[in-house]
Design a binder for these strands. Structure first.
Lengths: 217, 217
DNA sequence: GTCTATAGGTGGATAGAC
DNA sequence: GTCTATCCACCTATAGAC
């Protein structure tokens, strides 16, 4: 029985299991069972386990890039664009809970990773884009100039990314349901993160000499 | 030949390999070789692979707790204490590069983790402590009251934690050496992160009506 | 305490029928 | 395209000599 949905089924199952258990602990047989197909089929479609894994990652990255880049076209003030980026990032990660887990595993794997190159490149691209954005804001006078834009980019991305990675711990702090924080909380957090970043970046209003209390040099 | 340093050697080797490759991809034989001892000895000292892993994690967590709690006794202003916490966290993570990797793996593993409970508890404790600290600052008027202290705690921890997790990507952005960012950069980043957080938290100076530009409600 | 040898189990991958 | 059966490599864990 030829079923055109078989490859998709396999990818879906593989994505779920790889994210939950990691590459090594996930068996081909388990993926087959989860997908409801015979495990020998995985070889027919994806040659071997390694390639299957990379396919999973690639599919995830494609949707990520597609969904964010459409949200980032709109110009506007630097503040508005930072805001849009943070929210787009939060939305995508919230919609694909498997992505942050897989991504973080790859990052943790450093050099021994399966798809380290793809992932590192993606992360670096996000950082770089944000970095430019912060520089623009500094040039326009909206953001404080003493901040290193590269560091700022890391700070901003971190807030959102880590929220999803550390979900189990966050769940305890927020006393939220076992399935992770509710969509409402995720949205609230994303808004908080954007505000937090903007408040940190904001140039002091040119009003007074007593600018801003105690910061270290 | 009885050698009292054997258990330590094993733990050191195991820590390195588990952090690099993860639990499943790390073999008992590889640990033995790395430690320069016969692999059967691992069973003599640690019963089985699972327990060895938990011992590695436990040792790491003990040093983490010890080093940070000593740094956190000192009272002071809320700003000073946030500062101290961020820097202590950065120092410990920088000194034990294996820790963030192992920790993040466990977090990613969600429920299927080997030592999930320990790790989640540790993370939650850190969050909770910071959370209280932010609340104190809000009570004293040093920090803005509209911020949810739990969200703030997540934002603050994230900046530092993610920096170490995403090292490979950060490396590209910062164009730093293959061994990861230099100590000087790590210190600089830690200072940035503390400032970033404090600037975001700081209550607006009670000077003017035009407080702080464009924040979303 | 340390080592050798090996049992026993698991999982990736292939051959070949349908 | 899909399934059954199976091979083979590898790894955990133990038995037992020294």
């Amino acid at each position: 029985m030829t079923d055109p949905r078989t490859p998709t089924r396999i990818l879906d199952a593989a994505e779920r299991l790889f994210a939950e258990r990691g590459f090594a602990r996930t068996t081909i047989k388990a993926i087959g069972t989860e997908a409801g197909v015979n495990s020998a089929l995985l070889y027919y479609y994806f040659t071997d386990k390694e390639r299957l894994y990379r396919n999973v990652l690639q599919r995830l990255m494609d949707t990520l890039i597609e969904r964010t880049s459409s949200r980032l076209q709109a110009g506007g003030t630097p503040e508005g664009r930072v805001l849009a980026l943070v929210q787009a990032q939060a939305e995508v990660l919230a919609a694909n809970p498997n992505f942050p887990r897989l991504m973080v595993r790859e990052l943790a794997e450093s050099d021994a990773g399966h798809a380290g190159e793809q992932i590192r490149h993606l992360a670096a691209t996000t950082f770089t884009r944000l970095c430019t954005l912060v520089r623009d804001g500094q040039a326009s006078g909206a953001f404080r100039k003493e901040i290193d834009p590269r560091f700022a980019a890391i700070s901003i991305v971190s807030q959102v990314a880590y929220f999803f990675v550390a979900k189990p711990a966050v769940r305890i702090l927020l006393a939220s349901s076992p399935g992770g924080p509710s969509p409402a909380i995720v949205i609230a957090y994303a808004r908080h993160a954007a505000n937090f970043a903007l408040a940190a970046l904001a140039a002091p209003s040119r009003s007074r000499s007593s600018r801003r209390p105690r910061r270290i040099p």
